[in-house]
Design a protein around this nucleic acid. Sequence first.
RNA 1: GCGCCCGUAGCUCAGUCGGAUAGAGCAACAGCCUUCUAAGCUGUGGGUCGGACGUUCGAAUCGUCCCGGGCGUACCA
Length: 545
Amino acid sequence: MKEIISNIVKEVLKAKELPEVNFSLEPPKNKAFGDFSVNAALVLAKSTGRNPRELAGEIAEELKKKSRYFSKVEVAGAGFINMTLNETIYTGVLNDILEKGEKYGRNDLNKGKKANLEWVSANPTGPLHAGHGRQVCLGKAIANLLEWSGYEVTREYYYNDAGNQMNNLAKSVYARYMQIIDPSFPFPEDGYHGEYIKEYAQSIFDEKSDTLKNSDNIDFFKEYAEKKNFERIKKTLETLGIKHDVFFSETELYRNKDIEKLLSDFREKGASREEEGAVWLNMDRKRFQKDKVIVKSTGEPTYRLPDMAYHINKIKRGYDYIIDIFGSDHGDTYKEVLYGIETAGYDVKNIKVIIHQMVTFRSGNESVRMSKRSDNVYYLDDLITDVGADATQFFFVMRAANTHLDFDIELAKEQSDKNPVYYLQYAHARICGIFRNAAENFNEDIKVKDFNSGLLTEPEAVDLLKVLSRFPDEVESVTAALEPHKIITYLNQTAEAFHKFYHNNRVLNADDLETTKARLKLCEAVRTVLRNGFNIIGITAPERM
RNA sequence: GCGCCCGUAGCUCAGUCGGAUAGAGCAACAGCCUUCUAAGCUGUGGGUCGGACGUUCGAAUCGUCCCGGGCGUACCA
């Protein structure tokens, strides 16, 4: 819809021999100003030195001639041109929604293109904790959005299984195992304290008795714990309907020599140097405070080097769009990684990094601690159990990634109108209720193909149609910005428009079958848009509440 | 200290590539159920958009400085 109007404005500017400019065309905040507002005259006033109101008047005159589209065009304020669309345009939208159904809102702007989204990527040192949830849920929604815009999406999970962390994990399980045999066995200082470590140790002991007490068997503990941890992580993700296509292990980059090759590339280009027994990557001092170690003096790479090699690997796999989601604790380090990739001679322009801020949890007025040190970790599984998968997904996606998120567990748990997720779901359930009732007394009217959309003239119905017509534009812009929280903002507006319509207009009316038919079709369209939106953010569409 | 992010109604937050009277939910107050689910609707109150200065016809939005909070500033990841 927006595109159509935008093109009309462009045509008019061209016809008036005005220079091409970037104007903004938006539905104005205030409904009284019509359906779309364009600031073209204000923008042009600057470059042409003309009076903006005068210029706006001339453009408006031309637009008025397009009466097929506009019922009203007027100049307002400093030189805005406000346009009100013909209502018949919107009834066309209704047919469009009914015809496209679950495809309504999809576009093929990126048809034939491949995107790779890497997220979660938690190392398998333990179960996902509640804080991971933000990234988990954001990524799910973003992957869906990319698909809605035509991308073929590879969902990928990268994990470091070669570094220190996994050794600590192995030592921790080993220590717990040994403690079963000898309670005085020391626990490593930087070991993992979670209950799950004890469980693993116990089940190993149950199976193998004390046959593994020799510390040479440490690799067994590592592999066992890694396998168990991944089982748990995957199960948690599954609860939220997430399935990664690729699990990429750091070890693979050693096996296939990618890391070795990258290191020699750096050396040949003179981009790295050896000093104090370590290998340093020479950084651009304008952008970075100091050079960074890529291989420790122990001969072990720091996480940066495999990260760079991993991204080069992704680039070589030929994606049109490579997206990473990281927490703000990686806010600086990803820049180093990108710099390394560039230095090695690869283009990073198709790589986009989304940084999300940290989450704090509270229950009403009480803050919930997320200490990693203690045994008392609040796991993502716990959160899902407490508030449900829908509320989990909704609350994590509800806010812009780049702001701190305050997750109120008590509110998410609340089964009432206080909980924002129900406002949306209730709209859907209400529509399903109407159709249940219609099935009894108006069954034939549900099925009809022909209906008179001209009967949908009530202000609430027209407003509702206008909101529904925006859905494809929203999907498009939200995908471009990779900001799924805006889908929720939009769905709220949709639900609001529906609730108002419902309140003021009875759908099923035996005395007026024609209006009943038309309103049923409108409800059908609302239900379609809600379901499609729910699908993107990953919540269910309940039929009853 | 330096770098990145954030600061909008009592609370949680939208709005931020400059645009019209700054919005929503919750909380408060006042109404609406003999009719498709009141998990809804209608109305009222509530704001120095952290502060100051600057750019502009126009600033919550851009720039500089300051204040407050988060994250980073490792031969951890």
